[in-house]
Nucleic acid binder design. Structure first.
Lengths: 242, 242
DNA sequence: AAACCTATTATTGCATACATGATTATTGAC
DNA sequence: GTCAATAATCATGTATGCAATAATAGGTTT
C-alpha cells in the first residue's frame, strides 16, 4: 500500500481538480481565445467571484496554468497571462519547430490507417477553409492537422508536449490573421508535409514541417511591432474580461 | 496598469513561492535522489508536519510538481511520486532523445567560447570519473555535459524543457548504475558527440546524441524487470521516507 | 471460511480567517 | 508645482476549519 502501480496510471490528468478542472479549462479557453490577453493581470478575488468559488481553487488553478506556461506568477505580485517578449517568442517558435519536426519524422514511420485518415480529413478541412476564405475554420482545421501528426507518433508524451506548446503559443496566433495570403501559403506547406508523410519519408516530412513552423514564426516576428502597439493599447484601455 | 510588460520578465520561476520554493526544491531533491521512490504516496499532513508548515503550501507544491511531471495527483486519492510504466518510460526516453538531438544540432551552430569551455570542462570531469571508477562523480559530470549542450543552443525555452525532462527521468537513472561498463560506453559516446559539436557539424552531433540517449533508454528498458521487482519490494516493505 | 455489506476513520477539497508585503494615496517639504 | 516620505489600503501567502469522498475495519450471511 501507499504505492501506485503503473498499471493504474491509464488516465491523463496528472493534476487534481473538481472545481479546479473547470476553472483551468475556462481560463485556458479565455487565454487562447484572446478574451484574456497576454500581460493581463489575473486577480484571485475577481476570478473567485466570477466562478463562484473561493480563492483556494483559483490559486491552485493559477499554479497549474503557470506550470503549463500560460500564466506567470510573480511572488507577492500576482498572476499574469504570460506575455512573451520577442526573444521568448522566437525561442518558443524554434522549440515548436523542433518538436514538430520530431513528430513528423516519427509519424512518417508509424502512422496507422486511422492516423492517416485523420490527417487527410484535417487536410481536406483546411482545403475547404482556404476555398471559403474562412479564417476561423482554417484555424480549427490547422490545429487538427498538426494534432493528427502529433498523434501519429504514437508517443503520448511527445504528443502532450507538442499540444502544450501549441496552447502556449495560441494567444499569439490570432495576430497571424493579419498576414496576407496566410492560409494559402500555410496550406501549400501542409501539402508538402502531407506528401512526405504518406510516402513514409520521415526526413523530408521533418524538414518541411520544421520549415513550415519556422516560416510561421518569421512571419509572426515581422508583426511584433504591431503586437507591441496592441498590448500598449490594451494597457491604456485597462482591458476588462468577462 | 494591470499589464505586465515583457521587459519585466527577466526572472525564471514562473511559479509562486516563499515556503513553496523551499518545499519544491526539497521534494524534487528527495525524488531525484531516490529517497522518495516512484509510486510512493505523498501525504499532505505528513509533509506539512515534516516541513513545519500547513497543508496549503504543501498542496500548492504538489500541484507544481504534478505539472512538471514528477508527481501524479489522483483526484480525492492523493499525490504519488510518478511511477512510469514501460510504455511511458520508452516514450519519455524517445522524447528526451528528440529534444537532445535538437539541442545538439542547434548548439553545434551557436555555441560560443564559454559554452565550449563548459562542455570541455564537463567532458574532462567525465573522463576523470571514468578513470576513478566514481559513479557518483560521473553522474554529476554527465549532467553537466548534457546541460552544457542545452545551454549551448542559446534557447532558454528549449534549455528549460530539456532540463525538465532530465529531472523527470532522474529517479530512473539510478538503476542504470547496474549496467556493466556503463560509464565507459557513455563516455565513448560523449566523445563522438563532442567531436561533432566542436566541428560545428550539427547533423552528426544530433544523430550521435540521439543515438546516445536512445541506447541509454534501451539499456534501461532491459532492466525493467528489475525495476518492477524493486518497486514490488518497496510496496511490500511499506517504504518510509525521511 | 470466504465474500459482501455496513459503519467508522482518515484524507482530500474547499471555504474562511489572519499576517505580511506591495501598491497607492495623501501629506509635507523644497 | 513637483518630488519624496509616510500612512492607509489592498492583494497575496499561509493557517485553520468544515464537508464530502475514499479507504478500512468489522460484522453478518451464505
Amino acid at each position: 500500500m501507499a504505492i501506485l502501480t503503473w498499471a493504474a496510471m491509464e488516465k491523463e490528468p496528472r493534476v487534481r481538480g473538481e472545481q479546479t478542472q473547470k476553472l483551468r479549462e475556462a481560463l485556458e479557453e479565455d487565454i487562447a481565445s484572446g478574451r484574456l490577453r497576454p500581460g493581463r493581470r489575473l486577480d484571485e478575488v475577481s476570478l473567485a467571484e466570477r466562478f463562484g468559488v473561493s480563492r483556494t481553487p483559483v490559486r491552485e488553478t493559477l499554479i497549474q496554468l503557470a506550470a503549463s506556461g500560460l500564466v506567470e506568477i510573480r511572488p507577492r505580485r500576482g498572476a499574469f497571462v504570460v506575455l512573451l517578449g520577442p526573444r521568448e517568442l522566437m525561442e518558443s517558435f524554434e522549440l515548436m519547430a523542433e518538436v514538430e519536426a520530431s513528430c513528423a519524422r516519427l509519424a512518417a514511420q508509424r502512422m496507422g490507417p486511422s492516423d492517416r485518415a485523420a490527417l487527410h480529413e484535417a487536410h481536406g478541412a483546411c482545403r475547404a477553409a482556404v476555398g471559403a476564405g474562412d479564417e476561423a475554420a482554417y484555424y480549427a482545421a490547422n490545429a487538427r492537422f498538426h494534432g493528427a501528426i502529433y498523434a501519429g507518433t504514437g508517443n503520448r508524451m511527445l504528443c502532450a508536449e507538442a499540444q502544450r506548446l501549441q496552447r502556449s503559443l495560441q494567444p499569439y496566433r490570432r495576430l497571424q490573421l493579419r498576414v496576407p495570403r496566410r492560409m494559402e501559403a500555410s496550406f501549400a506547406e501542409h501539402e508538402g508535409v502531407l506528401e512526405a508523410l504518406v510516402a513514409g519519408d520521415g526526413a523530408t516530412a521533418a524538414e518541411r514541417l520544421r520549415a513550415h513552423v519556422v516560416v510561421q514564426g518569421e512571419r509572426f516576428m515581422a508583426l511584433l511591432a504591431v503586437l507591441q502597439d496592441e498590448t500598449d493599447a490594451v494597457a491604456q484601455a485597462g482591458y476588462q474580461a468577462g
